[in-house]
Structure formats: structure tokens, C-alpha cells
Amino acid sequence: MKSKYTINEIKEKLKYINDEDDPFFIEVHQDTRKGVQHVIQLWNKKREQERALKEQFYDMRRYEESLWKEGYQFIGGVDEVGRGPLAGPVIASCVILSEDFFLPGLTDSKKLTKAKREHYYEVIKEHAKAVGVGTASAAEIDKHNIYEATKLAMQRAIENTNVNIDYLLLDAMSLPNTIPQTPLVKGDAKSISIAASSVVAKVTRDHYMTALGREYPEYGFENHMGYGTSDHLTALHKYGIVENEHRLSFTPVKAIIS
């Protein structure tokens, strides 16, 4: 059987169909042309991917859903980025999502492409109940150590939401405050709130390091984001440290300045 539509027409119409019971889909499904069958296979594959992402999203809501049922309304997911680099701040984010927030594909920022992170960042900023970002500088990292500086950045992110948070979900960390909290190992892959905060923190820090790269082009910060790559170490040996940006307490930097 051959339908009255061209393959391109079928491809275009299928973009707007989401139901296998749609009369048009049923009609073209019986079209025996190889090109049409290929288009239908692609449609089915896309639908399956969408189903998988939807299931993943709702699976990652289980902690939030449990807390919402207990009466908590402002659940802050907290995560950080930048503990390992030799330069730049550690940046944390706290994100509070509403029960109707829906963003299939949201997960640990490290698993997302740059384009996806940027897109999700905009969606989260627009639709979250509240978003807070906190920073601890290289100088604070040197003063307190990276672990304590990370907690400092997280606490600032929580405060910068300007919301009375009543529960915290954190990525493998505990904070010394009075807010009830649950640390989750690999939380950015288990909780949508933590995943959202990981995206905000990652994109915020990437923007910071990209701007730093424009200011100090010889270091290539926009490429390595301050991590100890061979190019970064070569630039460090050649040009020395960037004051207030390089972490003097970190061994590769300390070795150069000593």
C-alpha cells in the first residue's frame, strides 16, 4: 500500500504527532515504501527515547515527592562545581523546584552536552521557584581548604535564594545549619533538584572561566576551565600565576611559586 503523501510530507506531519493511535499515523504505518518505513522507525525511536527520559525524570523525583507528601514546600537541591581545578572559584547552586516542574533529560550536568546545559540552565532559571548561587574564591580556598570552602559556597547559595528553605537535598555533603537535610551520594543523578543545581553551578562557573580566558588569553581558561591540563601547566610555568585566581595551596601551583 502507498499513501497519497510524499515521504517529506509524512516526515513533516509526524513531527506534530505524539500518539500511535492518531489516524494519520495509522494510515502511513501501512505504507509499504521503504522510505516511509524508515521515517516511521525514526519516529518510533524518538518516541522510545522520550519515554525513557520521562521515566528517568519521574524516577529522579522520588525524593522530592516523598518530601512534598510530608508537607515540605521549599526543598533546596544543592550542588557545587570546581573543587578540582587549579584556578578559579568553587561555585555552588541551590535550586527549589515546584511540583509541576517538568524537564525530561535533566540529570548530572557532567552527562550533558554544553548546548543541553545552556538550554536547561535557561529553563531552570525561568521556571524554578528560586535559584541561588554562592561562590568561594581562590583566596578562601587557600585559607579554609577546598572542603570547607565548598561548604561556604553552598551556604551562600542557600542564603542567596532569599527563600525560607525547609529541607535540603545535597550531593554527598552535610552542612552545619539547622535546616533538615539529606546528603545523597551521586545526588545529581538521583534528584531533580540536585541535578538542576549542578547545571546552574556548572554553567555559571563555565561563564566565569570563559570571561577569565578573555581577560588572560595566554592561559586558555575557556578551554580547560582551570583544571590542571598540560596546556594549563605549560602556561603556568611560562607566565606564572594569575593573582587572586590560582589556588596557591594546590600542589602544582605551589610547586611553581616555591
Rank of each mutant, 00 (worst) to 15 (best):
M1I: 09
S3A: 10
Y5N: 02
N8H: 06
E12Q: 14
D19R: 12
P23W: 05
F25S: 05
G35W: 07
H38Y: 13
Q41G: 06
L42Q: 14
R51I: 12
F57K: 02
D59K: 15
R62W: 10
Y63F: 15
E64R: 07
L67R: 09
F74C: 03
G76Y: 05
G76E: 07
G84I: 13
G88S: 10
P89S: 10
V90R: 04
C94A: 15
S98A: 06
F101S: 01
L106F: 11
L112Y: 04
R117Q: 13
E118M: 05
I124G: 04
V131I: 13
G132I: 05
G132M: 07
S137L: 10
E140W: 09
E140T: 15
D142H: 11
H144R: 15
A149V: 12
T150N: 11
K151H: 11
M154N: 11
A157P: 10
I158R: 02
E159D: 14
N162D: 13
N164Y: 08
D166H: 06
Y167S: 08
L168T: 08
S174E: 15
L175Q: 09
P176N: 09
Q181N: 04
K186A: 10
S191R: 12
I192W: 07
I194M: 06
I194K: 11
V199Y: 09
V200C: 12
A201I: 11
T204I: 11
D206A: 06
D206S: 04
Y208G: 03
M209C: 12
T210C: 04
T210L: 08
G213A: 12
Y216Q: 02
E218Y: 02
N223H: 14
H224A: 05
M225S: 06
G228K: 08
T229W: 03
L233F: 08
A235F: 02
K238D: 04
G240W: 05
N244C: 10
E245A: 10
P252V: 06
I257F: 03
